[in-house]
């Protein structure tokens, strides 16, 4: 009997798609057309010859909805593989953020100190601003952003996550 659990879970789903016109639109349309959430989505070609792209989606829903999303993704014609990284075992998920902080004096020094503690790299510096680059798990980025807020945070650009299963097995 399939799960009738009504609690919402977050799932990281990786989809290997044929690199063809409209492939991404099909995936996105599936979510919007059926009212499913996309919390983040990343896409890039991952093979030599750029024939295939990998789409990483963070979504949420009841276990029945997550199963439904995977089945619907899998039946799209250009989809090669669908992997539920959350369910299939441990995985690594990382994202990158560029964070602009505009401040001077003590606030500026404090921002730099915290960035150092987080191993965030200043990739652009002016006398009144920094752009920090930070890579890590989503909560680490969230924590850093929260700390930067009172220190002059003015702009955030995040990539959304790239994810992959731990261990030797592949998608």
């Amino acid at each position: 009997m399939a799960s009738t659990d009504e609690t919402e879970i977050t799932a990281v789903i990786s989809v290997l798609v044929e690199n063809e016109a409209g492939a991404l639109a099909r995936v996105i349309g599936l979510f919007s057309g059926r009212g499913y959430n996309i919390e983040s989505l990343t896409v890039a070609p991952v093979e030599d010859g750029r024939n295939r792209s990998r789409i990483n989606i963070v979504t949420s829903g009841t276990p029945m909805i997550i199963e439904q999303i995977k089945a619907l993704l899998d039946r799209l014609v250009p989809v090669h593989r669908v992997a539920d990284l959350t369910k299939d075992g441990p995985h690594v998920a990382r994202e990158m953020a560029l964070i602009k902080v505009v401040s001077t004096g003590e606030l500026r020094s404090e921002a730099l100190r915290i960035a150092d503690a987080f191993r965030a790299r200043p990739v652009d510096t002016t006398t009144g601003s920094f752009v920090f680059e930070l890579t890590g798990a989503t909560d680490k980025l969230d924590a850093f952003i929260e700390l930067m807020r009172p220190l002059g945070l003015v702009e955030i650009s995040r990539t959304g996550i790239a994810a992959i299963a731990r261990g030797p097995h592949t998608i």
């Binding site: 044929e18 690199n19 063809e20 016109a21 409209g22 492939a23 991404l24 639109a25 896409v43 792209s53």
Partner: peptide, 15 residues
């Protein structure tokens, strides 16, 4: 979502 058109163009060159 420029990626859509990018994907398409790449595909077209894929042979």
């Amino acid at each position: 979502m420029n990626a859509t058109t990018d994907l398409g163009d790449r595909r077209q060159h894929a042979g």
